[in-house]
Design a protein around this nucleic acid. Structure first.
Lengths: 198, 198
DNA sequence: AACAATAATACGACCGGTTGTCTTAAGTTG
DNA sequence: CAACTTAAGACAACCGGTCGTATTATTGTT
């Protein structure tokens, strides 16, 4: 098969995996379900990936990419200061989650909980995905520190870690409360209060 | 079978379920594995629970109970102020997680991510478990507010929500980093800084 | 108190369906 | 036609759940 089509199939497999793994979890989603969704025969799966586990590890990377790009876009916006960029970014995330009906939440958080301790390959993949994301968040906070809108008595990396942790927890709460209120409160508490200069 | 023995069997089923569901997730743990562990035949399972889903919902309640008791014990300690009680409590949790080798993490967080959006029965059970826990945490923070160690310009319920969210996120990080550092930083950031009077 | 009739429970074999993976053969390409 | 890629279906293992039966407990009748 032409390598271009093969790439396309792989891409489809990955983005369909993002959706299904996020909503139903790793063990809750069978290969058959994924393959049916992208109309690829079951026997072909192992031409694209060496195992379900390695597939999931790639899905993780494929998942985080758009978020990195979206966050970076806000941070690069020359009309926005760092703190406003972060607020806008999380605001966009919240409306997206509302429109999606609070389904799924965050693939990273869900998989960390489900298989973060049992699958070594996915653990590694989750590590790098989270680190990449958090590093970018820290860069945004550092920028805000230089602009004088965020307190400087705490390292930006530290605050970035707290922000991602609280955000993950808020996403879990969102899922069982079926409400965006936890997300809003989380952003407000940190970005409008805790991180502010005083 | 004598009802006393039946109760014992059910208890064993529940506590074994806590362990297995926490480490391997809902879909990652088969009924057979649980039943083998407590030496109860397959056919008997449905004499104790009406389905795997309802079983998991009861496991959730069985899981949270000891944490409520442990936290309450610290808060009731007349020699401790509220803030110190909270710090001691989370300190105990951290050493317990270290001794367990960072396995599992929190059953509530894991299940919220995995099936919080797909299983209605478990969603309900998770809601009440989290609320009970968070209410107790808020009571401790309120006590600390009255004692003058915690800021009063924020509602205790608000801070309790932030604390549980950040703690959940820190547990996920712990799992993939295999380190208690995220937990320690989480407690320090909130209990030693953000929540303090200023 | 002894026994029979009946109800309740415990149990392992078994259900249809699905899992992730592998073998094998057909198809594609240079 | 040789070398390689793709796909179809087979594969054993396992899933959650059911069922008929064997065992135990309870009740009713002498």
């Amino acid at each position: 098969m032409a390598t271009a089509i093969k790439q396309l199939n792989k891409e489809n497999l990955l983005s369909q995996g993002v959706q299904l793994l996020m909503e139903q979890g790793y063990h809750g989603t069978g290969l058959k379900e994924i393959l049916d969704a992208v109309k690829i025969p079951k026997g072909s799966f192992y031409n694209y990936f060496s195992s379900k586990e390695n597939y999931a590890a790639e899905v993780i990377q494929h998942y985080i990419e758009p978020f990195i790009i979206q966050l970076d876009k806000h941070l690069q916006n020359p009309e926005l200061d760092g703190l406003s960029a972060l607020k806008n970014y999380f605001g966009e995330l919240i409306t997206a989650l509302e429109n999606a009906g609070f389904k799924g939440g965050c693939l990273l958080g869900n998989l960390m909980g489900e298989i973060g301790g049992t699958s070594e390959a996915c653990q590694k993949s989750l590590q790098t995905a989270v680190h990449r994301y958090q590093r970018l968040l820290a860069a945004g906070l550092k920028k805000a520190q230089n602009e004088g809108t965020v307190r400087i008595d705490k390292p930006a990396e530290n605050m970035a870690a707290l922000l991602t942790n609280a955000w993950q927890g808020a996403l879990l709460r969102m899922k069982i409360e079926q409400s965006s209120e936890p997300l809003k409160q989380c952003c407000h508490d940190l970005l409008d209060d805790y991180f502010k200069v005083r």
